[in-house]
Simulated assay, not measured.
Amino acid sequence: MAKLFSLFSKFTDVLMAICLASMAILVFGNVVLRYAFDSGITWSEEMSRFFFVWLTFLGAIGALKDNSHLGVDMFIKKLPLQAKRVVYVISNLIVLYVLWLVLDGSWKSTLISTNAHAPATGLPMSYIYGIGIVMSVGMGMIVLHHLYIALFRRDRLHELMRTKESEEEIMRDSLDQNQSVTGGNR
Rank of each mutant, 00 (worst) to 15 (best):
D176L: 13
I128H: 03
R172M: 06
G59E: 00
W43Y: 14
L15N: 09
L175V: 11
S136E: 04
A21I: 14
F8M: 15
D66R: 15
S9V: 03
W43L: 06
Y35S: 07
F5H: 13
M141A: 15
T56R: 05
G183W: 03
F8R: 12
M47K: 05
I94Y: 02
L79R: 03
A60C: 15
H158K: 00
V32K: 09
Y35P: 00
I133Y: 06
F57H: 05
K84Q: 12
V87Q: 02
R172A: 07
I149A: 07
S68T: 05
M161R: 08
F51T: 09
N115K: 11
L70C: 09
A120Y: 04
V137P: 04
H69A: 04
V102P: 00
Y97S: 13
F28G: 09
Q177A: 15
R172Q: 11
P124M: 10
D104H: 12
L64Q: 11
M23K: 02
Q177V: 10
S44F: 00
R153H: 13
V72Y: 12
W100E: 01
M139V: 10
M74S: 14
D173C: 05
V137A: 11
W100L: 10
V31Y: 08
S109Q: 08
V87M: 10
L101N: 08
Y148H: 07
E168D: 15
I131T: 01
G59P: 00
R34V: 09
I170N: 07
M141Q: 09
